[in-house]
Amino acid sequence: MNKEHLLAKWLSGEITPDELQALKQLEDLSVYEKIIAKTALFQSPLYNEDVQLESLKKKTGLTNKQPKIKKIKPWKAIAGIAATIAVILTTVLFFNESNTVVIAEKGKKETFNLPDHSIVKLNASSKAEYSKKQWNKRRALKLDGEAFFEVAHGEKFDVITKDGIVSVVGTQFNVKNRENFYEIKCFEGIVRVQYNDLTKLITKGKSFLVINGIVTENEDHLLSNQPDWLQNRSKFSSIPYQMVLKEFERIFNVTISANNVDLNYHFTGEFNHNDINKALKTITLPLQLQYKLKDDKTVVIYAD
């Protein structure tokens, strides 16, 4: 086994414990770890398939047909109205006749396939609705809650929530739409978010977040290629404590009441979905709070 081969295996995560041991004898891996971590901060120049395809067609007159791509018009007001009409139309046209509905109850997660083999994973207490019949004409899905999408390659794919529309082409992303909370995380490719009259392109590793109407865009540098909840964890970065508790209720199917607790405190941390007692500790101890778990259904969180 030579060094190059071992390094390559280490990098792709396929190295066996024995090989790792051997490699550690040869090399100080921490130096490489830093190179890898920092390389992840670099980005290729922004690329938008829609724009490039349109320019290609203009250049060559490849087709007489109008391309199906919708241009993003600068007139925000019109865009806003158009978006609203689009939502109403989609709702009326695509979601009224014999739709398929998939629901993940509180405390449960669901995975299902769409007609084109795109995969949807629903987090606890979420609902997805789509039309099998209309799927070939338009790939659109109505979401209430949180879901992760692995979209099959092909034409446009829309996720419609009450706070906005997310449009993508063959990519992986997570949409979370809860009360006063709207978040899109992109894990692969590029997604377009429409929120009110705002249109944003979100690329791999980035996220778009609206809490109580305030928009933030983050460079998340997602280390994993899946959202945390699929790894049975819920992670929070400066999120109001109230929303953390709401998420906890959904995941464990419990009711939480809080006494003497600052619900607007911005919480940073995570909890694990496997053990409710451990999870409760991780969300209460850092804030010096106490908790009581009664009959597996009710939780009281309080300050001394």
Binding site: E49, H153, G154, E155, G170
Partner: peptide, 22 residues
């Protein structure tokens, strides 16, 4: 078929662009 061509473009064009850019 334009539809298929579009699909190919959306699937591969970014990878090819980055491949050449690098």
């Amino acid at each position: 078929e334009e539809h298929n061509f579009n699909r190919l473009f959306r699937t591969y064009s970014k990878s090819i662009r980055n491949f050449i850019f690098y």
